[in-house]
Simulated assay, not measured.
Amino acid sequence: MTPQDRAQNQAQDVLAPPAKAAIFLTVTIRDGKEQEARDALADVAGVTRAIGFRIPEAALTCVVGIGAHAWDRMYAAARPDGLHPFRPLAGDKHVAVSTPGDLLFHVRADRPDLCFELGRQLMVLFAGLVDTVDEVHGFRYWDQRDLLGFVDGTESPTDAAESGPAALVGFEGSGDLTYAGASYVIVQKYLHDLDTWDRLSVEEQELVIGRKKLSDIELPDSVKPDDSHVELNTITDPDGTERDIVRDNMPFGAVGTGEFGTYFIGYAADPGVTEEMLRNMFLGRDPGKHDRILDFSTAVTGCLFFVPPADFLEDPEPFLAQPGSTAADGSLGIGRLAHSAGRSDHA
């Protein structure tokens, strides 16, 4: 089996195509309920299958992410290489906040009723174990546009040959192969000031984003500002290779209260790629030149999660018993091998 096959076979549904509806649930685990929450994670896949089996064409999936503090409490093992709490960023004008989150449930399907039912059953499964700190119901809007009116996620890779290396650990035989098929996901909820945005002309909006609004074609370099959203979210290696992440952003809103926004969710084999994008946005690639989209969109949440291979959720011990999986304090966690050697803590 090639590294690509191994990674894809072991992965959760990270690479599922964009759906028409989604629910993003972020929860914290109650003190003393860590073992019960760990046990409940083993049942998530079965609950998802039971609901999705009735309407298979709706492609119901659920991706589970685990936060750094939850990992420390539930598994007592060295964290995966890229797992750490979300790092807040304070620019001259805008802030990327870090907010609580132990577990992320990314539920998606082509029908909102399936998302709702799975979300409800997940809360039944984890009743008394967790507290919900954020819940967002997303929907596809027009022709893949966000509420600012621009197509969202144009550069997100869709072919497995491109999305696999971008999102999955070990896809090309590199990274921590103990967790081949894993991913890292960063989520942020952005609230839009649509009244101010709509006062801009279409041409002004296009300069903020870096694309034409109607055609979605990227502006020429001679026209595209260096503080545009597209420019600051383009990450390249020293050799010129462009680094990608897999996005599954969705709009959300409440018309009665006037709350409108975009839920950003980016999967990456290396969370450092997404973090570099965020540094460019909030701090500026050049001093004082933040992403202009932040003048109209405010990040009100920020979390980083590890998305383990699918089998890990049902039985983590074979993964935790690999060399390099000692507890953060240097002692052996449950089921760890005596010869394990600890990795560094990225907190």
Rank of each mutant, 00 (worst) to 15 (best):
F305A: 02
V97K: 05
L129Q: 15
Q322I: 03
L41P: 09
G149N: 10
D239V: 11
L118Q: 09
Q205A: 14
Q12E: 04
L200R: 03
K212W: 03
G170E: 01
D43L: 14
I186N: 03
G302P: 09
V151E: 05
L219H: 06
G266M: 11
G173C: 08
P287D: 07
L125K: 12
G261A: 03
D195L: 10
K289R: 14
D31F: 00
A254E: 06
V223P: 00
A328I: 13
E231P: 02
L194Y: 04
Q205E: 13
A90P: 03
E155A: 15
C62W: 04
I293E: 02
W142M: 14
D295Q: 11
W71G: 15
G46D: 10
T241M: 03
G253Y: 04
D270W: 07
R140V: 13
M250Y: 09
D43C: 06
G335Y: 02
C115W: 04
S163A: 15
Y75D: 09
A328P: 11
A161C: 05
M74W: 08
V133G: 08
V230P: 02
S156I: 07
A321H: 05
Y267G: 14
E276T: 15
V208M: 02
W197N: 14
K189H: 00
V273G: 07
G272S: 09
P18L: 10
T326M: 08
F296R: 03
R73E: 06
A76W: 03
G272I: 10
L129M: 15
I334S: 10
D31M: 02
M250F: 13
G91T: 14
L294C: 06
L191C: 12
D270T: 13
T61G: 07
L129N: 04
V230T: 14
S156N: 11
R247H: 05
P309L: 00
A127C: 09
G240D: 07
P88W: 01
A45D: 12
V208R: 01
I29L: 06
L60P: 12
N249H: 13
A167V: 14
T48E: 11
F126E: 10
R199L: 08
L148G: 07
L15R: 11
A76S: 06
K289L: 15
V97H: 04
T154C: 04
V255E: 06
R6P: 01
K224R: 15
F53W: 06
T48P: 03
K33F: 02
A40C: 07
G175S: 05
D237P: 01
A341E: 13
K33G: 01
F252Y: 14
E203V: 15
F319Y: 15
H106P: 00
S201G: 15
T262F: 02
A321I: 12
A76N: 12
D329H: 12
T234Q: 08
F319C: 06
M281E: 07
K213T: 01
E203L: 05
Q8V: 15
E203W: 01
N9R: 13
F296Y: 13
P238K: 08
A76V: 11
R279Y: 00
G170W: 02
G335T: 15
D221W: 05
S344T: 14
A21F: 09
A182H: 08
P287N: 08
Y184C: 12
M281C: 07
Y75M: 12
R247C: 13
